[in-house]
Design a protein around this nucleic acid. Sequence first.
DNA 1: CAGGGGATATAGAACGCATCTATGAACAAT
DNA 2: ATTGTTCATAGATGCGTTCTATATCCCCTG
Lengths: 297, 297
Amino acid sequence: MNNNYELYKVFYWAATTGSLTQAAKALYLTQPSVSHAIKQLEESFGITLFYRNSKGVTLTREGEALYSYIGQSQNFITLAEEKMAALKNLDNGELRIGGSDSLFKHYLLPYLEDFHQKYPGIRLQLNHGTTPEIITFLKEGKIDFGVVRMPIVDPLLDVKESLQLQDCFVAGSNYADLKGTVLSLDRLLQHPVILFSRNSRARMTITELFQSYGLQLKPAIEVGSVDLLIEFARKGLGISYVAREFVTKELDEGSLFEIQLDVPLPPSQVGIMIMRNMPLSVSASKFMELARHTDMR
Amino acid sequence: MNNNYELYKVFYWAATTGSLTQAAKALYLTQPSVSHAIKQLEESFGITLFYRNSKGVTLTREGEALYSYIGQSQNFITLAEEKMAALKNLDNGELRIGGSDSLFKHYLLPYLEDFHQKYPGIRLQLNHGTTPEIITFLKEGKIDFGVVRMPIVDPLLDVKESLQLQDCFVAGSNYADLKGTVLSLDRLLQHPVILFSRNSRARMTITELFQSYGLQLKPAIEVGSVDLLIEFARKGLGISYVAREFVTKELDEGSLFEIQLDVPLPPSQVGIMIMRNMPLSVSASKFMELARHTDMR
DNA sequence: CAGGGGATATAGAACGCATCTATGAACAAT
DNA sequence: ATTGTTCATAGATGCGTTCTATATCCCCTG
């Protein structure tokens, strides 16, 4: 029984329409092809499946038996093809992203809004965590891609540079006397500094920078979210180290101002990381595409 | 989406085995063929179905979705093919025959026993009735074939001659004085005659024969079964008109004897009738075959 | 009863496509 | 490094599906 399953499709339509000619039309074939296909099937089983008469065809008892199974089979195939079409058109499915809350809020949010509006059927799942956690999520297949600060070095991952961020020190109105002045790093250290928690990439980078100048950067306050960095600086609790792109609003309205330094601060790359050699899910690649073609801000 | 369903079979095996190479073996194909088939499927959907790595392949999320449907579909196809094989091997199904009780008992019984022993899975359904009823059953599709006395003239039916019967007159021991003598038809009429009921083919035939000699055959007793014909004759109630083949036992043991006539009685053909141009069910054609190849008695 | 119009079956040709072999490339393991 | 997996790619080949053309059968109608 080494049948071509294609024959079942022909059989199904012949049985459903009760006519080889109709089946041929439905399948965009000619009538002799259908006739031949049915004959092949009958010969392979050694069983006659149809009564032929001048009005068309009707199933024999054995044909009925076959139809009861093949009909089910066809139903599932139809469902499968509908599902695939839905997946391709993103009528359903889900998009799972890993990243830090700050990147979600200040970087991905507009894209996410955009995406959700375009494909409301897609469930969005945002997994926040530290960079190592995100990497683990990725390797476990729990997220489609991760958005983290560069650099990332992992042979299993592909990282694509995305947004470039420029971290800077900002302060609130109570430090207004520093406005317009250019500080050196050691002068800066005379003020209380508010940093992100220890295991963040930005925190590590800036600490290393100070160390390269022989200085030790010890935060007066350590917080776990970008929002708190901003809030504390506005309340005058200290000088926050934060991506400039995340505080554009505050800088514009004047509730925060950037402190000029006599040394350049290194820019920081945001990278999008995916599993190397793993194809993206449809929803993920659609999201990427959308993000690439959208002019942010 | 004009897919060749054959691709689903390949997909199913690739997903099930988690290896294109294994799938190729299962399908008696080469690995490149499988690779190509999967690629075709992926391109037709515009969706990546598998993660490829050096150990084999695993389904993507979209592939899982497809598999959940296609798996069901394949299950039904497998069941269908098993069912067809079972039907062909007559592991199940039914055989429905129409005929008279006498033919069932005296003609078909040995074949039926034989058939049942050979294919115990087949349900036997015997529908008895008069010849016109049998024809109706046949046209309504309620029986696979009918066994009746010839001739049958119906453009929708095909009739194949089967057993030839020789009707004759038999009497019991109280008519022993007739043994060895040769009677003429009118002499016969001086004795009570037992005939089958009016609507039987045998009754019609013999009545016509008498008419052709200008004689009128009126039964003293009219019965509805061959068994009663035999029984009444044995009990001495009259002379029964019955197929010689149905009373071989009684003739042999001497409880009945055949009355010799001076004119030949016409033989009577038993015919097997089927719907013209309708293929026989598998069980029916197997039965026919068996009956043809079996030497009765 | 002839003829038209519907159905399926058959024959033979042709082309497309599935499949093959051969090879490449990536990766894991020893 | 080497060997043995895996899957991917390229190109050739030949089988088998599909086609056109035609036959056949049956029903219906004028």
